[in-house]
Design a protein around this nucleic acid. Structure first.
Lengths: 193, 193
DNA sequence: GTCTATAATTCGATAGAC
DNA sequence: GTCTATCGAATTATAGAC
């Protein structure tokens, strides 16, 4: 009798698929959806362009697979309420370094309706859920999450996409000091304040 | 002797040029730089596509003309220091309604290097100048202006580009109440705070 | 599984008649 | 000034050999 194959035998093409996704994220992050071509992505991954089509069906399918993104927000309930803002800024800054998927999503969402919808889903679901978890007035949850998203995405946009010099040059710890109180107020404060 | 022509005689093509620019701003704002085609812009303006090339030389030249933008920031020196944040948010929100040029610039800056550079210029020059005018420590001016830009552009991005529902649904006056203290602190406050 | 060849569009830009 | 016709390049996607 032959040795039975493992239940989840790694297909030989998995390495190729992973290489394609890695190259796709790089190109989508650097060039946006339209300028990132399947040919260029395939060249980066050192495979034939037709393989991309074979594995992911279309450019949209490739983007959908490459832009899968989890904010990996920590559970906010055990965090001292006065440290919520700091915790969130620090988390986002570290989450974005070393993973360019969100930059890819950010650039693509500017011009691609499907990418914009995905971005709405991510922030509507993941962020709103995290904000709701530590129990403020439920009627204000969505608005508080939206305000947090506006500052957090503005930070990402100015620092990683447009690259405004002062936002690029400011060390992460200084950004945390400045922006944490903003998120803190959006999460636990009142308008006007 | 013939009657001398007025010094600035309106050329007959000025109406056409204006129609092209209006259509170009709409398309660039709605679709971004790559998806906005000269053919579509010309169709909107009800003229021949070759006229766009004749008047503006190239697609880049057209965008440069269409994305000319002045933030029209008011002089901040006579404004009571405690009203700076509110004044700025209100100004930006009203500036963006009724002029989609900034949305066009915002969408294009995500994927087009030239548009990104123009956005850097606008916020580095116009905003930094306004911030410097009311005399904080000059060494912090650029950073304060960058932080203001991060929140202001994040507001524009979530409200007009990605269209996050809570940011679209919140009335302008509520946005002013929530965001004014943020800008106030970036302009006149200290980190940590 | 991998690659060649090419179909089918679409775009920016140009040439030239009127 | 305006328009027709078209070039040349680039793209996604498909068909099919090996």
């Amino acid at each position: 009798m032959t040795v039975p194959a493992p239940p989840t035998q790694p297909r030989r093409s998995d390495a190729t698929r992973a290489a394609i996704l890695r190259a796709a994220r790089e190109r989508f992050a650097a060039d946006g959806y339209e300028r990132a071509t399947i040919r260029a992505i395939a060249a980066d991954a050192q495979i034939d362009p037709s393989m991309v089509m074979r594995y992911y069906g279309s450019k949209e399918g490739l983007f959908a697979a490459a832009a899968e993104f989890d904010l990996r927000l920590p559970d906010l309930t055990p965090i001292p309420p006065e440290h919520l803002g700091e915790t969130l800024v620090r988390h986002f800054l570290s989450r974005w370094d070393g993973d360019e998927t969100l930059v890819a999503l950010l650039r693509a969402a500017s011009t691609n309706p499907g990418a914009a919808e995905r971005m709405r889903d991510i922030f509507a679901n993941q962020l709103t859920t995290a904000v709701a978890a530590f129990g403020t007035d439920p009627t204000t949850t969505a608005r508080r999450a939206g305000l947090v998203a506006s500052q957090v995405l503005g930070l990402a946009f100015t620092r990683y996409v447009v690259r405004l010099p002062p936002m690029v040059d400011t060390p992460p710890e200084d950004l945390v000091s400045w922006i944490a109180p903003t998120l803190q107020r959006y999460l636990t404060g009142t308008p006007g304040n």
